[in-house]
C-alpha cells in the first residue's frame, strides 16, 4: 500500500532542523482511541526524517490494518507539523515490520495501567496465568485497579479493535485490556 501523501503548510523551516521540530510536535500527538498515550508511546510513529529536497517525511504504522483511527492520526500529524512551522510534510504509512504490543514502552504500560486499562501481558511476566486457549501466548492480565490476578475475560473483542473486555473478580471492576498482538 502506498501511503496517502499529505503536503501541508507554507515554507518556513527546512532540513534537519525542521525534522527535529516536527519530530517533537508529532511525537506528542495523542492516539484518538487510547488518549492517554501518544502515537510515539504506542509505537505508531516509526520515523521522522528530512529529505534532500527539503521535505520532512513522517512514517507511521497502523496497529491493525482496518484501524479507522489512522485517518484521524494522519490529519492530526499533518496539523501538528503545520503548527510546528513545517513547510512540506509527507506522511507515509508502512506495514512492515508489523506493529506489535512489544513496542509499548514500560512508561506507556504504566500510563495505561494508571488509566485503568490493563496493558498487554509481557511474555516473561511470572504472574500472568496462561489461558487454555487455542491461540498460544494469550495471558490473563492483572486488574489495573486492585492488582488481583483473579480476572476473567468477558469479551475477546472490546469497544476498539485493539482491546478486550475483562472483569476483576476481586474488586468487581470491569476493565479494558490491550490485547497481545
Amino acid at each position: 500500500m502506498t501511503a496517502p501523501r499529505t503536503v501541508v503548510g507554507d515554507t518556513v523551516v527546512r532540513g534537519q532542523a525542521a525534522a527535529e521540530r516536527v519530530r517533537s510536535a508529532v511525537a506528542a500527538v495523542r492516539d484518538p482511541e487510547i488518549r492517554v498515550l501518544t502515537i510515539e508511546e504506542l509505537g505508531i510513529l516509526r520515523d521522522v526524517s528530512a529529505e534532500d529536497d527539503g521535505r520532512v517525511v513522517v512514517t507511521i504504522t497502523p496497529t491493525f490494518l482496518g484501524c479507522p483511527a489512522m485517518d484521524v492520526i494522519r490529519a492530526d500529524v499533518a496539523a501538528a507539523a503545520r503548527d510546528a512551522g513545517c513547510a512540506e510534510v509527507e506522511i507515509v504509512t508502512v506495514l512492515s515490520p508489523p506493529w506489535t504490543t512489544d513496542w509499548l514502552s514500560d512508561a506507556a504500560r504504566a500510563k495505561l495501567a494508571a488509566a485503568g486499562i490493563a496493558p498487554p501481558v509481557r511474555r516473561d511476566d511470572p504472574g500472568g496465568r496462561t489461558l487454555p486457549l487455542l491461540m498460544p501466548a494469550l495471558r490473563a492480565p492483572r486488574c489495573p485497579r486492585c492488582g488481583s490476578a483473579a480476572t476473567a475475560e468477558i469479551a475477546r473483542a472490546g469497544s476498539t479493535a485493539c482491546k478486550a473486555l475483562w472483569r476483576c473478580d476481586a474488586c468487581r471492576q470491569p476493565f479494558d485490556h490491550v490485547k497481545d498482538h
Partner: peptide
C-alpha cells in the same frame, strides 16, 4: 468501528 464501540460500551 463506531457500532463496535457502542456494543463495547453496552457490554
Amino acid at each position: 468501528a463506531k457500532v463496535q464501540d457502542e456494543a463495547g460500551h453496552g457490554l
